[in-house]
């Protein structure tokens, strides 16, 4: 009887382990994310040297850096520059309804809901965006450079003597 129960428990353990191993953890880096428009950071931030905060304008003011509004893209592209895949921003703005002009970007970095990460103090502390997001200005398609898990954050916080207080981020 004991042997059967033990065998059952061990197989459940193996099954559970397999489930964990095969399921994607929320913080696992998403290297396969494709965007609706083939926006290239290499061209914009690398070649044309546009500063990060020109488009991701709220990083120094808010928890969210902000994805640039469509108007930001149209500001430069309008109906002039570019071609091919950026028709969504170069087409004529004939319709007043925003939904028709929305661009739905796909998340590359997604922290779980119980982490209250805020960009503002990190920008204020002088961190370069590349410290966590990698060398984005060399990427045609953004892929994560690091696995952003708690260890990643705590290592840097320890090194830079920033807060290690749990409720600073978990509240």
């Amino acid at each position: 009887m004991n042997r059967i129960v033990l065998a059952l428990a061990l197989s459940m353990l193996a099954l559970g382990g397999a489930v964990i191993a095969l399921s994607q953890r929320p913080w696992a880096p998403r290297a396969d994310v494709v965007q609706p428009i083939p926006f290239s950071h290499r061209v914009h931030a690398g070649v044309n040297k546009i500063p990060c905060q020109h488009c991701h304008a709220y990083a120094s003011r808010s928890s969210e850096p902000g994805i640039p509004a469509v108007a930001r893209c149209v500001g430069c592209h309008g109906e002039k520059i570019g071609g091919g895949g950026i028709q969504p921003v170069t087409r004529a703005w004939t319709d007043d309804t925003p939904a028709a002009f929305e661009i739905q970007w796909n998340r590359v970095y997604a922290l779980p809901d119980f982490v209250r990460f805020t960009h503002r103090p990190h920008i204020h502390a002088g961190l370069a965006c590349q410290s966590c997001h990698g060398e984005v200005q060399t990427m045609d398609r953004v892929v994560p450079a690091f696995e952003i898990n708690m260890g990643f954050c705590v290592d840097c916080h320890t090194e830079k003597k920033a807060t290690l207080d749990c409720v600073g981020c978990h509240h």
Partner: peptide, 17 residues
């Protein structure tokens, strides 16, 4: 074992204007 849960929001939709 409980498999990891996926956060729901996978998209970022900025303002148009």
């Amino acid at each position: 074992a409980i498999p990891g849960c996926e956060p729901a929001a996978r998209q970022l939709i900025p303002y148009v204007v």
